[in-house]
Structures are given as C-alpha cells and as structure tokens.
Design a protein around this nucleic acid. Structure first.
Lengths: 350, 350
DNA sequence: CTGTTAGCGCTTTCAA
DNA sequence: TTGAAAGCGCTAACAG
C-alpha cells in the first residue's frame, strides 16, 4: 500500500492539497507566527504533513522571509580542544534557539579566514562568530574588517571571541589579566627563573598573555630576559619543539609558562622525554584549562576560561539573548569573562 | 562618497543592472556551469559584482536548483576528541568540494538523535553523516531507519561511521577485530588478570570492542569473569568511576582495558588518585588513539583509528568522491578501515 | 551567445 | 479567518 519511493520531498503544496486547504492556510498552520487559523483546519494540515512526511524547506523559507536560521562559526582548528569546547557552547546555545550552526576552519591563516568569511556570506547567516587568534599587522586584517562591516550593514551580526575587535561585539577574554594573575601566583610560590614558550608573535592572544605574564613577574621584581622567550607554533608540537630549543640553549630555569594548554602539554612531554620530571625542579604552567590538563601528570597549573560558556555567550551576544547568567548584577556589555588561576601539581611550592 | 549602509545585500538583479546586462547573463557569468558568455560581458558583470560586494545567495540558488551544498554531521559530543577529529576530516573534505557542513550534537540520546535528523532534513542537505554510537534495541532505531530511508528516497545520501548500518553507506570500523588484536598483543606481553571498563551495554561500539577483546583473550586461554566487566559511561568520568568501582571490589588485576581512550584516561587518573602508578603493577589500554593519549603518563597503549581519515572517507563515500587513497588495490566498498595496535608505556612487558 | 519568462518552495499582503 | 496572487533571489528552458 505504501507509495513507491517518490523522487523529491513533499512540498507545502502537497500538504495543502492533501488537507484540502489553501497554500496560505497550510503555511500558517505549520509555521506562521500569529496564530489565526481555525483549529479544525490546523489539525488537518498537521496530519496531512505528518502523513506525507513533510518538513519545511528551510532554504525556501529563508528566501521567502529574507532571513535565515543559520549561525556560522569560524575556528582555527576544530580538533583543538579549545575550539571544540567553544563550539560545543555555541551549538548548544544555538539549538536552544532553533538555530543551526555551520562550522568552517581557517587554520590560523588570515587569507583563508578572509576567503571563508566571504564564502560564508553566501549563506546569509544571521550571525557570524569568529573564535580565536586574531592576527595583527596582516594586510588582510583591514579587508576582514571591511567584509564584516559590510556583512553587518546588510543585516548580519558578528561576534568575536578574544580581544576587543573594534566595532564588533566581543566576548572579551582577559588574556592580559589572567596571565598577570598567574604570574603573581607563581612568583608567590617561589619561582624565579622563568622561561616562556610563546606563540607566533602575530597572534594577538599569545602576545597578550606574554605581556600580562611579564607584567605579573615584574610586580615581583622578576625580569624575563628576551632569550628566555621562545616563539613557537600555537600547537602541542610547537610547545614540544620550543622546549627542546629551550633545553638546548642550556638556560637554567625553574618554570616554563606556555601561553596555552595544548602547548603546555607539549612542554610536559618534551621535558619528560628529556629525562626531566615536570613539577620537580621545573614547574610548568599553561593557559585555558582544557579538559585534558587534569589528566596529564603532573596535573597542569593553568588559567581557567569557561570555554563552553564563552561559546554560548558569543551566540547570545550576537542574537541579543544575552541574559545575565546569574553572574550578579552589572549589565552584560563587553565585560571580560572572569578568569581564574588554577594551581595544580605541575607547580609545587619551591 | 560611499553609499550609506544599505539594509540588504546586493542581489543578482542589482548586479545585472549595474553591469547593463540581463539577469540571465549575470547569472551565467557568475555561477553558470557551461561557460557560454562573451568575455567582455563576463568581465563587466564580475566587476559590477565586485563593486557591489555581491555574493551569491546560496539559499536562493539552492531553491532554484533544487539541490543544496550542505552536509549535515551528527555527533554525540563535539568536545570529545574522537568526534572533533572526525569532524575535522569531514570539514576539510567538504570544503575541498565546496560544501558547507553543519554540525548538530545528539548527546548519545536516541530520541534527540531522531529529532535532530528530522530537523536537519529541513536543510535538505546533500549528505547526512551520522558518527558514532549506534545504540541497539531502542524503539527509536527503527524510526531512525525509516526517517533516513525516506531522506534517501527524496534524493539525500546518508553515511554512517561505525558498524554496518544495514541499507546505508558505512565507514566500517572494525571494533571487534581491533580489540581482538589488542587482546592478543597484551596477552603476548604476559597480562593475565584482566578487567574491562566497558561502556553502556546499549552502545554497540562498546559491546563490539568488549566482545573482540574477550575473544582475543580466549585465544590465549584467558577468561574474563563477568564481575571483571564493569559498565560505565562512555566518558572520561565514566572511566574514572568505573575504576573506583573496580578497586573497591578488591579484585586483583594486572590489566585494565577501557573500551575507548577518553575512558582510559579516566582510568589512569583514578588509579593514580588511588595511589597506584599505572604501568607498574597494573597496565592500562584504551581504544581510538586520540591525540592526548601520547601525552599522559605513561603514554597509553591503544588501537589506532585514523580518525580524520574516517571523517573524510565518510564524506567521500556519500558524495561518491571515494577515490582510493593510495591504499593498495581492492575497491573501496564497505572494506573496514584498517586498525593498528599501538603498544606504549602503559603496558610494559610483564 | 543573450534576453525573456517561467518556475523553485515558501511567505505575506490584500481582498473576499 | 481564509484564499488568490504577488513576490523572495536565483536558475533554466526557450526563443531570438
């Protein structure tokens, strides 16, 4: 009795016919906002839709309404726990609002980021969220700004996650302050001879953390000699290699700060592979508090960012759903996300 | 001189007018397949588009063409490295083909998975990729099959990642074989008193790995008593708690196999927190070879799955781009992805 | 090769 | 309230 596999999805038209009502009525019963349709009709339409296995064609709906239900998320690397945690937050928040999120990866490449933004505009997303690694000094930066401004001029909303992004909404991460606090805490634990495995100089987040950390040390009268700052890739392998370089230099240090946790994980492995037990003799600290750092040995001292929240905030900021999540008082605004220093086994008191 | 922020994106119409050509010509120069348009015109159109900051409205295009450029990916948890690595593969492969991927998370909840599939159909994706954790025995299973079949009947393509999914294309993961090989290798290293932290019984992947492992042990004359099989959540915390339970039972074991790496990471942490040094006395093994397991201490013995490849394969399988990636000979087909036992420090020879 | 003209599936005036 | 009809932005015959 079942009809042979038809070759295309049921349309609203089909539903209307099946229910014996007009297209308009069908539309109104299924998706219309202002409910002004006879319950009896509505019933029949819904049943007909059910029977035909009808699902609204979101694209067609978008075209007709002139607005979509899409959120575009750009990340450097979705396999990096930092970004995947943020993505989880964005996706969860989005699905609560009936929005669908499309993810694109830019691989920390400014050119590619720009191209991606352009391509994504074709989707006419309601919101575009750019997570991570604003670079600085790139010729693309201005072009990106222009592209995004134009996107906003045509009704889109953009939200950045990271440092203040000029005219755009931003979920502010206080990289400077968090790193400063961390440095202060570590100095308090007795560390004095510090090295930093920093990121590529053009990654702003990395630089801010470096600066904040330096400042925190300075407050305790500790200086960070330039040769103790090693620039490396913003990845686990970057941390690993940076550490090898550090060790090769023969510098004698009692603490290594990597500007993010994935790098710090690399640091720990590199130390261990060099026969040094991290946490005894040399302390190690990171930044972000990605899930894994609890599970490496020793557990890593770091600065906690509530990653999932950050993602969720970014979405809400952009959609205007920015309810004040219980965080007492003061308006949402570009208030920085609170950061917390977490001391763990990788930096015992000296 | 710059025009005041217009309130909606330039349309093809605008471009055509600006360039002084017809709509059709504009369309053809910008997106048309068969190139049959005077170069001079094309030039002008492209310039006009440029000037107006025009980008094709993909939705409208989709409606007109009756086909989209969207790929929908369903994962249990995007923050889980297993899934985020697969996602990376899917996204990369997709972007190479000019496809955009939207990600939805199901949280290992069959009901939610079904709902999500239904919602996603509204996007009329070209492809739907379901990664992970097929459950068994759920009443939703049949409904899901129906929904997906109907999706395919209306022109969509679906691909599963995991065990054979009946009528749908599948990137086959040889959970059974991989686990068996692992067990054999471990038995060869001298382990005899084994416990397994298994996943929830209804997760098929978990069960297959358990069965394969049991079989491998049996080949060496080792039996796995039922009380040595502990079912726990398929997460890091599941592994942690499962291990606590195991320890509390007082069982004396020399090896713990967790059916996936995130659980194994929990096992390692739980052992350590209980004052036991993993790798000395008790060996630990996992499954998947997610990136972090190289960096915990001791490095984890596991079964490698080329996660990114798997994601990429799934997409290619669905789009029919399934080129034979150098893997000598034999057709693509539902050949299982090759698996590899990786022995690391967590399971030294006894 | 170019332009005209129907659609695609859905929403939304505007009358009835 | 309901239905007819005019779009939304784009593509695809179809003539010219």
């Amino acid at each position: 009795m079942s009809a042979p596999a038809s070759k295309s999805p049921a349309t609203l038209h089909d539903v209307a016919r099946e229910a014996g009502v007009s297209l308009a009525t069908a539309s109104r019963s299924l998706n219309g906002s202002a409910r002004k349709v006879n319950e009896a009709y509505r019933q029949r339409v819904v049943e007909a839709a059910q029977r035909l296995g009808y699902t609204t064609n979101l694209f067609a709906q978008a075209v007709a309404k002139g607005s979509t239900t899409t959120v575009a998320l750009l990340v450097a690397d979705i396999a990096d726990p930092y970004f995947s945690s943020i993505a989880a937050g964005v996706i969860n928040a989005a699905s609560e609002e009936g929005l669908v999120v499309t993810i694109a990866v830019t691989g920390r490449n400014a050119q590619r980021e720009l191209d991606t933004v352009r391509a994504l505009r074709g989707q006419r997303p309601r919101v575009m969220i750019l997570a991570g690694s604003r670079t600085t000094g790139s010729a693309f930066e201005e072009q990106l700004r222009l592209e995004l401004s134009s996107f906003e001029d045509t009704g889109g909303k953009v939200a950045f996650i990271s440092q203040d992004a000029a005219p755009f909404a931003t979920v502010l991460l206080d990289n400077y302050g968090g790193a400063r606090d961390l440095a202060v805490a570590l100095a308090g634990l007795g560390y004095r001879d510090v090295a930093v495995i920093a990121g590529p100089p053009e990654i702003r987040t990395a630089e801010e953390r470096l600066d904040g950390f330096t400042e925190g040390l300075a407050e305790h009268g500790i200086t960070l000699p330039p040769e103790r700052i090693i620039h490396a890739d913003f990845t686990r392998d970057g941390g690993y290699r940076g550490t090898q370089e550090l060790l090769a230099s023969g510098a004698s240090v009692d603490l290594v700060f990597a500007v993010n946790d994935v790098m710090a994980v690399g640091v720990v492995s590199a130390l261990r592979d060099a026969g040094i037990v991290p946490g005894t003799g040399i302390g190690v600290a990171g930044y972000d508090d990605i899930p894994t750092v609890r599970d490496i040995t020793p557990a890593l001292t770091t600065v906690r960012i509530p990653l999932e929240d950050v993602g969720r905030r970014a979405l809400q900021l952009a959609t205007g759903t920015a309810y004040d999540g219980g965080t007492a008082g003061v308006g949402a605004g570009p208030e920085a996300i609170p950061t917390e220093t977490i001391i763990r086994g990788s930096t015992p008191r000296r």
